[in-house]
Design a protein around this nucleic acid. Structure first.
Lengths: 233, 233
DNA sequence: CGACCGGTTGAGTGCGGTCAACACGCGTGG
DNA sequence: CCACGCGTGTTGACCGCACTCAACCGGTCG
């Protein structure tokens, strides 16, 4: 199952950003021969909470949300995965069902790598395993910070944080607007609030000249002010 | 620096519960020769957020809270570590400062293992590394669940969850009271609320016969009811 | 064209944060 | 020995943030 030259892992720059950078040319060839490229359209579900994954997804391009459904019917978005991240590693190392659902936020291309390959590599390539450890350590740190932010900040502050996070991780277009576009509902689900509350607070942020909007796009105008507001002036 | 026979790692049953179970008798001897036993009294700080740890702590007995200070001056408790857990692994694998502070909730005894030993073992013993991965994967899962609980449940539900968590992880004494005793303030910091709100909701739980108290001890009377209440009746 | 989705606004309400006062046990020092 | 201070637990009152329900608008798609 050879893939076209230009999408082979050996030539893929994305791998520089994740734990796969530990692999030799030889190993990358094996992976490339076993991977499958997959495309998702905006809104497509990549996998669902509770599924048993048979491999991991390496994000080549696009953004996808990782969310969990709580019994009151609301989706809490836990993380937004960007280019270079690998989804499903956790489930593979712990050999359990996924804890989260993944959904494409825009058109997304992924490489699907069968889990046995990953497990083999964990056993064979210590550097890869160490990279994995580091990635997970940093995810844990992020989770802890997220927990603190959620419980100690009000909705306005959490929205500010979410927007800063989006800018830092996905960047802006040439006019300075955020490169990823969350619906108000998604943004509400990130900060764990009702859609209406989210809309109202965004309107406040706009009124206070922290942000501006054009169509559905959002631009952060006053990053410094944001940071001050988050830490309570 | 030999330790007395009875506290040597080879004889320590605690290691069955954590990633250290991967080690051979030989390896345990090395660890034992390099570790230091340390005792903490209730309220003692084990390490502080931002410190650079030079090793990890293996909890031999007792309970300790892992918390993070937010800029509004409140401590958010992220996890309560029990017997068998290892504190500081994350900072060691990522070679960064700790993200969290650790404080003893009651008299606690720990073994301090220098970080170089852990790093060496990560490089030498693949099974140990795999165990580490699993522990961290499970921590991540817990964190995600915590985030959902925090953002989708009200204070009463979160307290119920916290109490169930304490019962499941630390058990009860012979009369059925929870074996660990959090102050109201600590409990409030776990669920991310004000101390007074916490007190009021606990009083409600008592009025509704979900729990009972005796002195400072708490007993869960209606676990089933708790679970129903958490998922919204 | 109508259905539907996303965004927006209004009005009402209640949960939970905050401040203030007080009760109680415990240790410490005069 | 008692006075005092301090930490913890508790209660009351007030109030504002954020949730909920409901209506409405504009764009898009079948």
């Amino acid at each position: 199952m050879k893939t076209p030259e230009k999408t082979r892992c050996e030539n893929c720059i994305i791998r520089q950003f994740n734990s796969l950078k530990a692999f030799s040319k030889e190993e990358l060839k094996t992976i490339s021969d076993n991977k499958v490229s997959r495309e998702f359209k905006k809104g497509d579900q990549i996998f669902k909470e509770g599924e048993k994954l048979s491999g991991v997804f390496c994000v080549r391009d696009g953004a996808s949300k990782l969310s969990k459904l709580s019994e009151n019917g609301k989706h809490q978005i836990v993380k937004i995965a960007k280019k270079g991240e690998i989804l499903g590693q956790r489930s593979v190392v712990s050999d359990e069902q996924t804890n989260l659902s993944a959904t494409a936020l825009n058109d997304t291309s992924m490489c699907y790598i069968p889990k046995q390959l990953i497990i083999d590599k964990i056993n064979e390539n210590p550097e890869f395993t160490r990279n994995l450890l580091k990635v997970m350590a940093s995810d844990l740190r992020e989770s802890d910070n997220f927990i603190v932010n959620m419980s100690q900040h009000n909705v306005k502050q959490r929205i500010a944080e979410a927007l800063l996070y989006l800018e830092a991780n996905f960047g802006t277009d040439d006019e300075g607007f955020l490169a990823v576009n969350l619906t108000r509902e998604d943004l509400a689900n990130v900060v764990g609030t009702a859609t209406e509350s989210c809309i109202r607070q965004v309107a406040e942020l706009k009124k206070d000249n922290y942000i501006s909007t054009k169509g559905k796009k959002t631009k952060i105008e006053d990053k410094k002010g944001f940071e001050d507001m988050i830490s309570g002036f």
